[in-house]
Write a protein that binds this DNA or RNA. Sequence first.
DNA 1: TCTGAATTGTGAGCACCGCTCTTGTCATCC
DNA 2: GGATGACAAGAGCGGTGCTCACAATTCAGA
Lengths: 252, 252
Amino acid sequence: MAAPGTARAIARAELTEQIKNEALRQLGDAGAGELSLRAISRELGMVSSALYRYFASRDDLLTALIVDAYADLAHALESADRTAGAGGAAGVRADTPAAGGGARPAAADPARRWATAASTLRSWALVQPHRFSLIYGTPVPGYRAPQETTVPAERVMLAFFRPLEAAEDRPLEAAEVTDPGLDAQLRAAGSLLGPRVPPARLAAGVTALAQVIGLVTLEIGGHFHGGFEPADALYAHAVEALTASLGLTDRP
Amino acid sequence: MAAPGTARAIARAELTEQIKNEALRQLGDAGAGELSLRAISRELGMVSSALYRYFASRDDLLTALIVDAYADLAHALESADRTAGAGGAAGVRADTPAAGGGARPAAADPARRWATAASTLRSWALVQPHRFSLIYGTPVPGYRAPQETTVPAERVMLAFFRPLEAAEDRPLEAAEVTDPGLDAQLRAAGSLLGPRVPPARLAAGVTALAQVIGLVTLEIGGHFHGGFEPADALYAHAVEALTASLGLTDRP
DNA sequence: TCTGAATTGTGAGCACCGCTCTTGTCATCC
DNA sequence: GGATGACAAGAGCGGTGCTCACAATTCAGA
């Protein structure tokens, strides 16, 4: 790798981006199974073997697209949360997402923040379903997600758990966690997702996120076809129920 | 097509089944993208072109596998429900799933039936994740599910909504459906899924099913890796919460 | 500034893929 | 017992991912 700034490095970064863009374009047309390196190179006016200077294999390219998709989704969720936070209850700006303690009543409504995350996820997925499928779709049997994907994947998770931290004091009607194994798993996961969130709310957060992903999966997969299409109302109804079950709403 | 019963027809049915079995085997090894007609024919000791006498194309074979997967899952759910129904509260047999009216207190516990469906779905999916992915995984962009798939798909849905019918009289704490559009969608869907189930419980049923599918999707996709694996306890916790939110438990 | 090394592009080639078409063989039905 | 249709076989087309030897280019250190 040449030092960044040289003409060669710039050209490399540029071409790498072009390759990924063209790959993304083809992915939207035909699905991950049809992604063709030869077609990409053809479109970019280069010989197919040259592409291997940038990505060692087709799987490598796909992995890069997965990492990008995670990062892009995480970015969308984070910036949406920042906007929702700014428009919150008392108009307090929340430019630093990981702000320190206190000032609870001044922070944006946690229910609103969570609902924003949920609707941002759906919007993002509906605009580019192939990228959503890349992340949450059919896994390749032998495929183990490389380390590079876990970090942006956590960013996505966090966007749904940060609002839970802001609701410490609200009562939660969710069932207590009785299974000691699950309790241990939740406490371990909680150290990453939200140390101050009790296990019961953490569990509710995981299942709520699963429901959101399930709904989007079903919608994108066409399983609502002829029944709940468009699914806007169903989704809104579900999100409302979820924020309530998470104990984020102000209603007691 | 020869008349059924002739040696030729029998041989044809036999070979068709062998092809699908071998395809399923390869699918488990490598994923839908790697399914190779040539490899199947090679394994079956025939020339590749001969395979086209049985399936017009690769997509045709995949569609057949999807239909089979739906049917198999539906069958698993239905027979599990029959077993759960037999072992229910008062030991009343429920050989005819679509039994007529009354005898409500004698029927099996609706919560138990729904939980059975949920755990059957997960077990089925974990044993053969490639078939689950075939149904609920990444959709092919241009692909429109053919008519043949809709009927078995409905059977799967029904397995999760029949228990709701058995809970008519139980109170439901789920939020009322306020959106008129959603209400219309629910009433239309209800004519198929359960005419006597009120819209609010129907909506809860759809989102509950989405959560179950989302959880299994995440588990199969390895998204719980390092956090909630094994996910048995998390799943059990979620199912318990869902049966409660569906108003199926006896507790008020 | 010049030169050796690293990087990138080229084109041929291998093994595989889905799918089509022609040819010859066989079971089935009138 | 033929005519007919289903069937297997094989060659072949255009496509794929990927490798390799080679030429061109760019960079970095003496």
